[in-house]
Design a protein around this nucleic acid. Sequence first.
DNA 1: AGCACGCCGACT
DNA 2: GTCGGCGTGCTC
Length: 749
Amino acid sequence: MPKVARVLIDNSPDLELDYSIPDGLTGSVVEGSRVAVPLRAKRTSGTVLELLDAPPLGKNGKPVPLKPLSTLLGGRPFFSASLIALGRWIAGYYCTSLDATLRSMVPEAVRSEKQSFKTRKRAVLTKLPDAAEREHLSRRAPRQAAILKELAESAEGIAITEFSGASAALKALQEKGFVSVEDKVVTRDPFEDETFLASRPLNLNGAQQVALKAVTAAVESRGSAKPLLLYGITGSGKTEVYLQAVDNVLERGQSALVLVPEISLTPQTVDRFKSRFSHIQDSVAVLHSHLSAGERHDEWHKIHRREARIVVGARSAIFAPLEQLGLIIVDEEHEFSYKQENPPRYNARDIAVVRAGIERCAVLLGSATPSFESFQNTRAGKYDIVTLDERADDRTLPIVRVVDLRTESRKTRGKSPGPSVLSERLRIAMDRRLDRGEQTILFINRRGFASSLVCQTCGHVCECQHCSIPLTFHKKDDRLVCHICGFRQLAPQKCPAPDCRDPGIRFAGFGTERVEEQLRAAMPAARTARVDTDTMSRKNQLRDTLAAFRSQKIDILVGTQMIAKGLDFPNVTLVGVLNADLGLHIPDFRAGERTFQLLTQVAGRAGRGEMKGEVVIQTFTPHSPAIQFARHHDYTGYSEQELEFRQGFSYPPFSHVVLLTSRSTHERRAEFTLETLAKRLKKTLPDDVIMGDPSPSPLARAQDQFRFQLMLRARRTATITRPLQATLEATTIPGDVIVTTDIDPLNLM
DNA sequence: AGCACGCCGACT
DNA sequence: GTCGGCGTGCTC
């Protein structure tokens, strides 16, 4: 029996102390247990990280004298030994304290005592009156008799709200001892008002069968197989492979974890899992950010109680306390939303691979446009790859046409104020769809400065007072809004530049709002709807709009990234990308990769039914590789060219990036701090680390803080992080400067 | 010499 | 995180 517990003290970064386990508690103190411990003269709390047989030896060679831990807190631990191991790995790799890491692994709604199980008072039958009594009641107190009859038929009792008009009768029955009223736990069901029609497994085509076999073999190998990359083009039926693989895992008595990008992007994926497993609906738990705190609490406990065997969730669901894991699936593994933007800044896709290693289970990464990190891992033999290169049911990929906006703007010059949103080609294609009763999706990538207010006469751009980015014009409430800090101001009537004052500024730039407006004017017969964060604020609004689109009550759907991914509408035969350049010219070596992924994903929304699809991409740079390769559906071609470039410059996946950022309201201090760190790092970092110069971040100011950054690259992350941590500890950082470390960043702003 | 303050290391 | 030891440097 272990006699010693190593305890991580709460709220004290990386303080791990050993305590002896008193006799009364041996056996009940396990890894993950919450315990109260003495610390100096006080009492504090902590988490048991591991159990030891004997106290460690001190500097004098003798065992360290240990204090006994005080008591056990709480019930079954939040963390299993393998989740603690996972936490240790994350804390080490991402340079975060173990305490903060473990805290981020359990939802706040579970961790804080505020949320608890929801209870409702229910009446239950305690004993049935004898025949004479019943006879008496039915004559003298028909209300009571009726209640008894109802209760006799329901095993779980009936909520007392059902008897709201008969509280006196209920009370009388309670007093006679026939009925008792108890608090019963009721589960908050995020899908309460939805029904899922059971779906049956579809027939797999040859490639899908090969893929399923490979996954099943990996599951059966119990962790000795390599991670598996499922590269399947859009519409090739990846989800069906996931569903059947999960089914196999369940049959083996194991559980499965399915990660999907932030749920609002793919409501359809969740629905497909809920439907396929509708016969065991209670075994499916869903975890994502749109759940209420109470729902999250209940779903998490459903997993913790071992009731749920399938978890479908976003990024943080990678920490779901599932046991006997057989398979972890990461859908759309290239998605940037898997990266957490606050500490620990982990990437759930990478954590999935680590967790699979710890739990000795299989891991499947799926994508139509795999990240170059994962793809290179298959080329290097670290991952295995299976390919679905045909659309399921013999459908074909859409024809992609590229419209050169440079020649287009020459055609329309002078005819309309500002740039024209729809090219002639796209207009004609849309008219044709409307005539045939088919549907169109128009995609506008609002990232970048598309809808900023730029004066056409003097070039003045309305910028945020607190951040160094242009403000975005929202016509509905006539405001300029900062998408970084939320700052809002009334839109100016004319150009604010003192020597300009041109009223034309109000018509510059376009975003989804303006597209919709122009569309209404240009095609009055079409029924249109807009999907972006502004219109989809209400709960279920996205779901409702998509349902209306599916039932063809809407002809044209205009939207941002929200409609780019994962949606499957058979009647959509045309997709228009209004400005493909917007993500292309940002200072980030992944700009091309991101654009290629987006175009490929958007194009994949067209022609998913019987009818052939068409995609029109409007761009000012038709020659750029991301656009040309996307046009030809050529992931392999693009990856070859891009990987060669990345290798030449030692960018990921041929190196790991560590991004050091300093920020402060005091510009010089932020800059000086980073310069000092850079100087010290130059001395301690090994030669094979590529270190840039400290420089202003592309987002030079945000929320009144000036930002500077330093990029470091090396083959192995630890080559950088070990000396970096030592340097950070040894350097005094001014109180008003914040220094952050981002390992494998995806956002270089 | 006496004391305040801040840094640093230990806490089991 | 928090406490206490100890060194520095200022004041009496």
